[in-house]
Design a binder for these strands. Structure first.
Lengths: 208, 208
DNA sequence: CCCCGTAACGGATAGCTATCCGTTTCCGTC
DNA sequence: GACGGAAACGGATAGCTATCCGTTACGGGG
């Protein structure tokens, strides 16, 4: 559990997990599939994104769509990937307080705020992904990266605790379904969510 | 938001949400469906529980199964219902530290521990329910009850915070998919999870 | 006790997921 | 530039969800 290794949902568009690079026709189809998927989501919403629809839209066979992206969830993760990378850069190499050169607790707080924004931004897409496969979250590269990051920060803030486990628990409140429930059904604002996250962090601030 | 009102997944076997009681044949079918569902889960696991399988097993039409229980998730919630009621009794009217007559913070801690046990106990069933419909969680009576309970306790521990929101965030780490990830893929024990939950509570203990 | 409105029933149906496997295409090697 | 194995392709298929709607059965009012 160190750097995020190639995992479920962690293929930016390069090759399959095996050694050699992707064949030319395969890469072309991957691109066409992603384009069609983005178009469908833009026009009809994430719920209309089905493997069949993509296959029909592109003229590519269903089997091929499944061969490139294992299931709907992974296709959705791929659509989220671009902004996800920008998000990762922001907290890994960006300016403080999100990036380095800020005290750990402050960074942690900034990260959770940024995460709240990120989930809210692409809530529909993320909710669709979670609906398609709730546990895919935990085998995705995006989650692994966030978890590693939070674990490091928690370790520095509270060395005597089980940082990895606490990191999971700090990320849990930001599952798409809860964010959806709070903001769409519950009428909550992102700022209220951020404030509550701050409260959750208070405990970590003071060593027991 | 007071007592848990009749909601999605909150029909113990009585009638539909409308006024009048359930008709005799309908009630009989409900019972037969639940029996068959329990049998299927016991013999082949929760993944084998499909509406078609239940219909075939009972000789009841598919349409009827859908009429009694709206979808697979609700059928699964119904299977969880009996133990859920016992769990509710334990934290609402049972002996301390879980029930009344214990200090709020202690009760809160006991509740989260009990919740960890509860999720672990029926993890397969809960995971199947979450997989079928992740957001059903938040419209279920079971969740409403837990949330109300935690909100009350949090209010007493930390009156100046947004108790309802904090309650959601304290419940979030116990979503079935995360518990599954931690205990089955991550090799974590329930005790470790409880300890981490304690750490999460530290912040609420001390008013800032 | 019959009558009738309402609820319930159940099979047919459309559309989706995911897999399987025979066929086709690529591309490194010689 | 031809070859051959690995990879990719794509349509057919099985099984599931969820809905629709014509038919059936219950049970309270008269």
């Amino acid at each position: 559990m160190d750097a995020p290794q190639p995992q479920h949902g962690d293929r930016p568009g390069r090759g399959p997990r095996t050694g050699r690079a992707e064949r030319a026709d395969a890469a072309g189809n991957r691109r066409r599939i992603l384009e069609a998927a983005a178009r469908i989501v833009a026009e009809k919403g994430p719920d209309a994104l089905t493997m069949n629809a993509v296959a029909h839209e592109t003229g590519i066979g269903v089997g091929t769509v499944y061969r490139r992206f294992g299931d709907v969830a992974q296709l959705l993760f791929a659509l989220l990937d671009e902004r996800e990378k920008r998000f990762q850069e922001a907290f890994m190499t960006g300016p403080p307080p999100l990036g380095p050169d800020a005290p750990p607790l402050e960074r942690l707080r900034a990260f959770l705020h940024a995460l709240a924004d990120r989930v809210t931004d692409q809530l529909d897409l993320m909710l669709a992904a979670e609906t398609a496969a709730p546990s895919a979250r935990y085998s995705s590269g995006a989650y692994a990266t966030m978890h590693t990051h939070v674990t490091v920060l928690v370790t520095r803030v509270r060395p005597e605790g089980d940082a990895a486990l606490l990191a999971h628990m700090l990320l849990a409140p930001f599952v798409p379904s809860l964010t959806h429930h709070l903001t769409r059904d519950g009428g909550r604002t992102v700022d209220e969510i951020k404030a509550a996250a701050d409260d959750l962090l208070l405990g970590l601030a003071r060593p027991r």
